[in-house]
Design a protein around this nucleic acid. Structure first.
Lengths: 188, 188
DNA sequence: AGGTGTGGCTAACACTGTTAGCCACGACGT
DNA sequence: ACGTCGTGGCTAACAGTGTTAGCCACACCT
């Protein structure tokens, strides 16, 4: 394992354990037993570490979603992952998505499971993605008051949507090739 | 106008003009022709300024939404406001909602328009809110690839939902009294 | 042996939010 | 009229942030 990966590993552990404000260059270096400026021998800057975490989060989330057989279970898998890795989810979703830093294909790969559900319908996939993301984001931000029945909200949201998704035009069952801009970008 | 409001005003202008990283205590003080530590004579800390901006954003958004006659136009009004005041929207939505700092009633007031659409159905209101927020958040984060037809996504999302909303149980046409925890908190 | 890249180090810079302590001024009560 | 006191400014300073410059030891390769 290269030292760079090691840094990202520590950053991830630190992030989930102590929150985003704790992942600082000096703290990171401490954890590795070195001095903060030495980090720059392996990494261009903090933004690069964040980009790496973002990429990692996208891959993990995408992999988790792969297993879901239908839309409702995909929804609960999405929410469950986000609640289990809240900081990673935030970093994956709040950061403006450094596409140029991202390894090619990971954005597309994260989109595949959802796209499969909608039969390749990009618009519908984006609706569902927005719905899931919005609900997760509000929940993570503590926006639903304590005691709110969030389970019921998710049930309602995706129960009704499920019918629509199946009724969608089956123009492309196979996910489109992860081409440049438009194709794979519905889920990331 | 008290000096405190003046500070928040400058903060808001600075935020929308130059972005969140530009609204710093020293910069704020410069804009007011004073020294940074003097700000603390009027404000407990930066968090208080942010909380004030958050409250302001909630009020403005709520007021804008008031005018919408039906669900589709409420959706476009929501999106339009967010796109016109992206930084304010972020601060209103990303910050963990300092409920104790918030003037009583503003959270509830922001929820009223949506709740009216759903005939008082809290769960449905939250679904719609999550949907709208998620789509806005993804768009603001630059998550939809350039060239994506976001209009189409919104049209699809709320065209189908509109029927559901009207078919919702009409158990409470009048928005519930803005009681303590549960009632008014669906939209904020 | 000699050169070279790798990966540490210290010192320092320009920022950030924030605190302590001082001081001028204006209002207010006696 | 005079003392008192709150208001609102100031400077100096602190701890912490990301980041750069420059130095140096060690391993490796010719």
């Amino acid at each position: 394992m290269t030292r760079r990966e090691e840094i990202v590993d520590v950053a991830e552990r630190l992030l989930e354990r102590a929150g985003p404000q704790a992942v600082t260059m000096r703290r990171l270096a401490d954890e590795l037993g070195i001095q903060a400026p030495s980090l720059y021998k392996h990494v261009a800057g903090k933004h690069e570490i964040e980009a790496a975490l973002q990429q990692r989060a996208l891959q993990r989330l995408g992999a988790t979603l792969e297993a879901a057989p239908d839309l409702p279970s995909l929804a609960v898998a999405y929410r469950a992952w986000a609640l289990r890795h809240p900081r990673l989810y935030e970093i994956a979703t709040r950061l403006p998505l450094a596409r140029e830093r991202l390894a090619p294909g990971v954005e597309a790969a994260a989109a595949v499971p959802l796209l499969r559900m909608t039969g390749g319908d990009l618009t519908e996939a984006r609706v569902l993605w927005g719905l899931a993301h919005g609900l997760v984001d509000l929940e993570l931000a503590g926006r639903f008051p304590p005691g709110a029945d969030v389970d019921a909200v998710w049930a309602r949201a995706f129960a009704e949507r499920a019918g629509d998704a199946r009724a969608a035009p089956s123009d492309a069952v196979e996910p489109p090739d992860p081409g440049p801009a438009e194709s794979g970008a519905a889920g990331s």
